[in-house]
Design a protein around this nucleic acid. Structure first.
Lengths: 191, 191
DNA sequence: GGCCACATGTAATATGTTACATGATTGT
DNA sequence: ACAATCATGTAACATATTACATGTGGCC
């Protein structure tokens, strides 16, 4: 086996931060890394088995009563691999997929009004994501401060910035549309 | 066949904007949508065939000399499907994958210095992406203005914002580390 | 002649989501 | 009794990347 995938590293990291079961990994991820690196059960459970086979985590059956449960912890090797990745200077994977932005990109195929509507929708969707984020933030203790909170702050700041930028873009587009309309009606543009 | 995938729509849209061959679709995508919706040859060529089978694009063999070439254009149905998507109000797919941010999120597993280094790396990587973007921007005519330019402006503004935010985060982290050091050395924190 | 850009395509692989199956425990 | 939550897992499917194979045409 060569390098781990980023998703494997998320799982490793979350166990490092205290998640014990696959279920907990998923829960932690959903309220924390989800925004910038999500993971589904279909990845988590098989990946935990792979990490165990590779000796990076140690799993232990931890049945209480009739509940089947498997608790994992990092091994020494797992900690080393995790730390090596955290300080590595290899280029980081970065990708964005934004369907709303795609719509705006193709805005030349739309009327002025339709384009403005697409921009407003983009802003509204970011505003909705922001609300959900703030709900998570409100559950964080006020004086708590660690890196996970820094990442949360980034998410919130990012969404706020987006709401502002697209609000501004909408304003600019409206002004443009008005100007174009005046030019069509009245005196042609002279420069 | 039910709905198209966003990637199919990118291809449809790029043909709508004037790309004719699979090769051109890839080229256009690489200098425009790549930042928020990339596509590889492995998707483009098979997808073009599917779109043609669905009657959304019409392909025509356009061999000049010995060069095998297939030129596509939107059909009426293709234009309608594209327009319907552009104005649809279904929720838009949005996802971000940022490995650098992931590293920072796990920063509690690092020393102060290592965390600061991770943050600086994140900023530097955004700065590098920004440079590449500005190179694309410089090739755009000054007075050109359309939606694709708006999307480019968004990309640049986004990266600039990131560089600023992470510069500021680094500053805050350094201040925190100094404060913590003072407290360890001198009078203990009292509250 | 050699290199690069143009051009099309596929196979293997990797990655990721969704939906489903299964069952215990806890709270109302 | 019922719903929600805890808990594990897989199969089918969807999506995407990488690497390779193949060949032309233009330029130096």
């Amino acid at each position: 086996m060569q390098g781990l995938t980023p998703t494997a590293r998320v799982i490793l990291g979350l166990i490092g931060l205290g998640a014990r079961t696959g279920y907990e990994v998923k829960q932690y991820a959903d309220i924390s890394t989800r925004f910038f690196w999500g993971a589904s059960y279909g990845q988590i459970y098989p990946e935990l088995r792979r990490l165990e086979a590779a000796g990076l985590v140690a799993g232990e059956d931890d049945a209480r009563g009739g509940v089947r449960k498997r608790a994992y912890r990092l091994t020494g090797a797992g900690e080393r691999v995790l730390h090596t990745w955290l300080v590595a200077d290899a280029p980081s994977h970065f990708s964005l997929r934004d369907e709303g932005l795609l719509r705006v990109f193709f805005g030349d195929l739309l009327s002025d009004e339709e384009l403005v509507a697409a921009v407003r929708k983009l802003r509204d969707e970011h505003a909705l994501r922001l609300e959900r984020f703030r709900a998570i933030e409100s559950r964080v203790a006020e004086d708590a401060w660690d890196s996970t909170v820094l990442a949360l702050e980034y998410g919130i700041a990012f969404l706020e910035w987006n709401v502002r930028w697209w609000s501004d873009a909408e304003r600019r587009l409206r002004a443009r549309a008005r100007r174009a309309q005046r030019e069509r009606r009245g005196a042609p543009d002279r420069r």
